[in-house]
Design a protein around this nucleic acid. Structure first.
Lengths: 209, 209, 209, 209
DNA sequence: CATGAATGAGAGTTCATTCAT
DNA sequence: GATGAATGAACTCTCATTCAT
């Protein structure tokens, strides 16, 4: 590609990213209901029609937002390093599990994107291709936990089962936290999550799984 | 209140209940997106305007629906009886926990109402009064579990903590199930929930909590 | 139906008719391109949304307009009486053919509705049901001509063929007139149409058909 | 004009022709509704803005398309040769009339351009200059028919009148064919057109005109 | 000459809500 | 209490056109 085309492509990419940023901002402050094309355009300093130069539909924006969020999730999980001088699989499990839990704990709306959206747009939105991409990246983010569980001696099926349970536990806590329900129990979501991981390790040590 | 007013009030209550029934029916079949005032009115045999005689806004309907759903949840939990000739607290925990889990597993849309809605609604949608009512009734539905945990020897704080965790675990599994994410892990939500309860009982028996 | 319902139905019908009138007015002055819901609503003194109380879509309006136009066409044809003391089939042919030709000559946009629309909306508009209705009513308007031709001694197939040709001739002349092309030939559409009918009668008299 | 300017003019003409080709292609496959500037530009390998270097508006493109179509019509008519060893005016009439009828029968969209468009376009779309050009070229295409009619003995006025009627007849048949209306009569447009020409010749032979 | 970005107007349609009756 | 009419604001999306580069 000639330099000029490269430059223009870069500019387009930047503008597209700016639209996406605007969309994320709107989404974060107004939620899915308020994230209309008009609102996104306003936040991006565009007229509504201009948005369609960068995304072919509103749902394509959501899809891009979700894909991008999952990339950041994976990056956060990858970057998480277990503590200690000689970290073993137990430490790895703790580190990787905390990584994804904290990611969503810090960015609660992105959990919405992942789940809330999925069910809200079933008919038209979320093409099966995008759905698979979502699954893949989600799996990828949980893979380190599953690997650590296997390294701790769990059979593959057991590792998968416990990963699922771990994920569900975290998601449940995040949801309670996000909706304010956790406050009513006077609990702290992160503490509970950590306790779950510790309990899981204990059960494995005791060969209870 | 004079007899006439009482009679009128009774009539109003009945009609309000009919509207609410219609709303639940619509909500169950069309979900939150399709549950428009028009649709609810049609299902109730009313015109849209009439709905406003009973509810001041669309979101008030949702709120009432939620309150009513929580009543049914509590009824389901109350009705659940532990199995065996001489059921102890462990059996009680299993029975009561399964009761609320199955309630939402069987009526997934009602979980939407409880959580999904809470965050999507406008400030006026979920008044703090309604919010407290929600909390109370939710607490009430979980109280039998908490009691059983205490009967099993847990300190009050520990019992509350474990109830919270139990609830979160169930909610997480239900969410994964409802959004179809559980399929991708090849797991069954109910089995995982039962396993969690068994694991919890085991930890208590071992004095690990 | 009770009196009240009847009265209200009547009111609704009147309002619907007013919307349809507005639509026809807009259609006549702005053509098919300019006949938007917004414009129709404005002409009817409504907001756009109100139109949907009377018609479920823009194309339903066109359909109703067309149906109504065809009714008026048929009424015009029915009302046309042959001249002379003892009018025979020849006079009947002249009268009935002139009736439909003049109808469209006087209301050129309605020919648009009948043809122009048909091809413009093929994909979505014009349900096959409406299409059949159109065909039926069009046939009905031409039936008197066909009957007269048979009464003049033509075999059924010949009568149908000549009716088709007669219709095509008229339509062609109307189109030339409507688009201003006829002026360039310095001719008058009605004279040419009458001449065609006379020629047709002459051919029949000579057994040339 | 200096050589350089000439060369540039030639280049411009070529590119303009390419755009026009693209427009025709799009128009043929997508019809008037789908023939957007975007689509034409895409087909021509240009961006939308570039089109405006060659045509000042979308309707100018249609105008040019129409002009070009009329050139091809005239070419088709010119190329048509009467059959037989010693073809007379009757054969010439048949050949020339069939030529233009078949041209539009084979390219029905171009009839749209000629008529359909004329009435739909904004005032500025069809400038009076273009309108005259249209008339001239249309006249030219029909001139051979008119000449043949005169050669058959018709007075000039009669020849013009019959040419007009012939044209109207053909146009009517083409419209019925194009909109699918002819099917409902179970007739074939070309057969009917040929019959009309034969009938016309017969009338002339009988001095009925 | 051509691009690519952007505009602005407008399309059809939906819906919660209001209000006179 | 209930109706039915209507509003008004919102929705997603399309398109001809302009203009700096």
């Amino acid at each position: 590609m000639p330099a000029k085309a490269l430059r223009q492509q870069a500019m387009t990419d930047v503008r597209r990213a700016l639209v996406l940023d605007a969309a994320r901002t709107v989404f974060e402050s107004l939620g899915i209901e308020g994230a209309s094309i008009r609102e996104i355009a306003r936040a991006a300093g565009y007229t509504p029609g201009a948005i369609y130069s960068y995304f072919e539909s509103k749902e394509a924006i959501y899809g891009a937002l979700l894909a991008e969020s999952l990339e950041r999730l994976n990056a956060a999980v990858s970057a998480a390093e277990p503590l200690g001088d000689a970290p073993g699989p137990a430490e790895r499990l703790e580190a990787k599990a905390s990584a994804w839990f904290n990611f969503y704990s810090d960015n609660p709306r992105e959990l919405d994107l992942g789940f809330y959206l999925v069910q809200g747009m079933q008919p038209r939105g979320l093409t099966s291709q995008l759905n698979e991409q979502l699954n893949d990246r989600l799996h990828a983010a949980l893979q380190p936990c599953e690997d650590a569980l296997q390294a701790l001696g769990l059979a593959p099926e057991a590792a998968l089962r416990e990963t699922t349970a771990l994920f569900a536990h975290g998601v449940g806590l995040l949801l309670l936290k996000h909706t304010g329900r956790i406050r009513m129990f006077g609990q702290d979501a992160t503490l509970l999550f950590d306790a779950y991981v510790i309990g899981l390790l204990e059960r494995i040590r005791q060969d209870l799984i």
